[in-house]
Design a protein around this nucleic acid. Structure first.
Lengths: 150, 150
DNA sequence: TGCATTTTGTTGCAAATGCAATAAAATTGT
DNA sequence: ACAATTTTATTGCATTTGCAACAAAATGCA
């Protein structure tokens, strides 16, 4: 069976590296763009779900979000009925830079898929989704402290 | 055009997270497995090339390799003809754990591709390779301090 | 209802990450 | 031959990352 992990790792690190460099211009430090776009797209999401969505450690997400809050990109609001959760919303400042993040991400996406036919782009999108669904099961399993047998 | 960046990011973070947890057993700290496998497979490689191969910052690679050396997994050897470079080789200890890393990576690869026909696995392997080649051009460009226009 | 478990959030620590700056050897161009 | 540039490696500093441990609210279950 073909080895695909390394290609995925290389692509992900290269893309992340590029984005981090390009978003310094907007005073976003490493990784913060990941959280900000998702909060803009899913206002009211809680940090636990966000960590799951992005696939980072809960505590890493907690701190990244705290920094976004400190720097005025997002705000936490208490929920009416649930005292435990804190809903996340972009501030006006956060919403203002959101389109720039989208634009950068779209550009990288186009670069990544340069030379691809529309059908090829659709094929890989579907295959990647299947891989992600396969692997997130193990991720949650291992993250919870379980041991994979192999 | 389909958006594929996020799926790739999710998959890469999930896989890396799983590996980091599973390799603690062999006293490898975060990310070290990436370097060790490549040194085992390419004995004599220098750290600059390794950073390029993995797509991490040169200084990050330098420190990861230094730690692998301190903990006895790899060794640096001077080159006969070139006083500047330091060739990297696995130690006996490094070579001993190499198969365990391979085994884990192979397992994750199988999990990732569960339910895939052989032809689908080949398709995605090729498409990913094309994406990686597309994106590494920009990565090197931006890493060198150039600015992308978009 | 009451108790155990799960969910959600936080902080302390140890470690990796990466930009900036420095240095020295090698290579290139004239 | 030699000066300018590129390649390779390193260290200082600020920052993110993530495991462990803790706390409190919510939920499940008997």
């Amino acid at each position: 069976m073909k080895e695909i992990l390394r290609e995925i790792g290389m692509i992900a690190r290269a893309l992340d590296s590029i984005s981090n460099i390009e978003f310094k211009e907007y005073d976003l430090t490493k990784g913060q763009y990941l959280y900000l776009v998702r909060i803009c797209e899913n206002p009211g999401i809680i940090q636990e779900k966000l960590a799951e969505m992005i696939k980072v450690d809960r505590t890493t997400a907690a701190r990244a979000i705290k920094n976004l809050e400190i720097h005025g990109f997002v705000e936490k609001r208490d929920d009416e009925h649930n005292k435990k959760i804190k809903k996340l919303f972009p501030t006006e400042k956060g919403n203002r830079i959101f389109p720039f993040i989208k634009r950068e991400n779209d550009h990288s996406n186009r670069v990544a898929l340069a030379g691809f036919a529309e059908s090829e782009a659709e094929t890989i999108a579907h295959l990647l989704q299947r891989i992600r669904k396969n692997i997130e099961v193990d991720w949650e399993f291992v993250k919870k402290g379980n041991k994979r047998e192999y």
